[in-house]
Simulated scan of single mutants.
Amino acid sequence: MPVDVADLVAAARDGDRHAFDELVKATYVETYTLAYRLTGNEEDARDVVQEAYLRAYKGLKRFRGDAQFSTWMYRITANCASTFLGRRQRNRCEELTEDLSTRDERPAASPELQAEATALRERLQVALRALPPKLRAVVILRDVYDLPHEAIAAELGISESAAKVRLHRARKKLRDDLFTRHAEVQARAV
């Protein structure tokens, strides 16, 4: 039976703890995915998601329903990730590298194409992790979640023009980084 999120929100707002638990179940995958893409780390993503749902639970009475609950959760998650990454930046330690490779479930046309796609995905993940958190958030919200500039600005609490500028800077940094890495790989292969 499909879950009606609006009904769950209304019930949770009235104090039904089970309804809030069901809301978490209905939105967890998308919330975690966003947190993971913003932090680039599974443990950090879990911390961000936990904080996001805690904030959502505490602020549910203030949820007006002007937007979808999932959009509201995106904003809370993006804010939690931004706060988390800012705190981590201030308390920076030497970071351990982590294999964040993902599997493409579709078979490639050939092993060469599959290897090329894997290498490109790895270069892109490295380039995304190298972006400052503010730029990474804009790229992910625009290019992965396909949010318009207006929604990105609202999510991150910035002006629409600032969102456009950050997106332009982020894409330029990604492009430069990816072409530099590709040239280095090609030079080593020769």
Rank of each mutant, 00 (worst) to 15 (best):
D4K: 05
A6R: 14
A6V: 05
D7V: 01
A10D: 04
A12S: 08
D14Q: 12
G15D: 04
G15N: 05
G15H: 05
R17D: 15
R17P: 06
A19H: 05
F20T: 08
F20W: 11
F20Y: 11
E22S: 15
L23E: 04
V29M: 07
V29T: 15
E30R: 13
E30H: 09
L34D: 06
Y36F: 15
E42I: 06
E43L: 08
A45E: 05
D47Y: 08
V49M: 02
V49E: 00
Q50S: 09
Y53G: 00
R55M: 02
A56F: 07
A56E: 03
A56I: 04
G59Y: 02
R62N: 13
R64Q: 14
A67W: 00
A67N: 10
A67S: 15
Q68M: 11
F69A: 09
S70V: 13
W72N: 08
M73K: 03
M73H: 01
Y74W: 08
R75V: 10
I76W: 03
T77F: 11
A78I: 09
C80L: 07
C80D: 01
A81P: 06
S82P: 00
F84W: 14
C93T: 15
C93R: 12
E95D: 15
S101N: 08
D104W: 08
D104Q: 08
D104T: 04
E105N: 04
R106E: 03
A108T: 07
P111H: 14
P111V: 15
E112F: 06
Q114N: 02
A115D: 01
E116Y: 04
L120C: 07
L120I: 11
L120S: 10
E122P: 00
R123N: 12
V126Q: 13
A127S: 15
R129L: 14
R129V: 10
A130G: 10
L131K: 12
L131Q: 11
P132I: 06
P132T: 12
P133M: 10
K134G: 07
K134C: 03
A137M: 04
V138R: 05
R142A: 10
R142Q: 02
D143P: 00
D143A: 03
Y145Q: 00
D146R: 06
A154K: 11
G157N: 06
G157V: 06
S159C: 08
A162Y: 07
K164D: 05
V165F: 09
R166S: 04
L167G: 05
L167M: 01
H168R: 13
R169H: 13
A170K: 00
L174E: 02
L174S: 03
D176V: 08
D176A: 09
D177G: 10
D177S: 15
F179S: 10
R181P: 05
R181N: 13
A183Q: 09
A183H: 07
V185R: 12
Q186R: 08
A187C: 04
V190Y: 05
